[in-house]
């Protein structure tokens, strides 16, 4: 089997930077805003999302291709995927708790959040919509996870600084945080066209 590494890099960079899940596509905004208060928890959340995305993408792809497509059950996609994600999250939680209490300590708290994290569901669905191969699907999930992690960590850094800012009364709290997110999102527009210029076409 020959693998087109250039295509894989393009998929990865596109998912992580150019079409960043949080800042460009508004996927996973709730944890992005909710868990970005300090660096420790945002790193934990970032890793948890990346891990669950990878796991979910590598499990849902075979389910779609070998189970749903072959049996003409495509309409069940959303139901099956979200159930699979929920089950995986539970399994990982149990396994972590048993075999790696220290890892559970740092990641475990964020795992139950994954079921209602639309970014995870979105990654699995768009892998199928895009007609990716198995490897491409896994790589795109990795890219999406990395992008989420990156956005999360940068945002936390900026947000820690806004704590000392003195905005107008009405803008205190969430409005200021959203403005910060807007500026970060604007910054990510700088990646537009990067792929074409790096890899040609």
């Amino acid at each position: 089997m020959d693998i087109d590494f250039r295509a894989l890099v393009v998929i990865m960079m596109s998912a992580a930077l150019v079409n960043n899940y949080v800042l460009r596509q508004f996927l996973g905004v709730c944890p992005f805003l909710g868990v970005s208060k300090d660096l420790k928890s945002s790193v934990g959340m970032g890793f948890a999302v990346m891990f669950v995305m990878l796991l979910a993408a590598s499990v849902t792809w075979p389910i779609q291709v070998f189970l749903l497509d072959t049996n003409d059950l495509r309409f069940m996609q959303t139901v099956v995927f979200i159930l699979v994600i929920a089950t995986l999250v539970q399994l990982v939680e149990v396994i972590l708790k048993k075999y790696s209490p220290s890892l559970f300590e740092s990641l475990g708290v964020y795992l139950p959040l994954m079921t209602t994290n639309c970014a995870v569901l979105a990654v699995t669905i768009s892998n199928i919509n895009n007609g990716y191969t198995y490897i491409e699907a896994v790589v795109s999930a990795l890219g999406a996870g990395l992008g989420f992690f990156l956005a999360m960590v940068i945002f936390t850094g900026v947000r820690e600084h806004t704590a000392s800012a003195d905005p107008p009364e009405a803008f205190k709290g969430i409005p200021l945080i959203l403005i910060t997110a807007a500026i970060l999102s604007l910054a990510f527009f700088g990646f537009e066209g990067v792929i074409e210029n790096l890899f040609g076409q």
Binding site: R24, L178, I179, A182, S185
Partner: peptide, 10 residues
Amino acid sequence: LAPGGFIVLA
């Protein structure tokens, strides 16, 4: 665009 969404909500 995406930043506009954040700003309007803010």
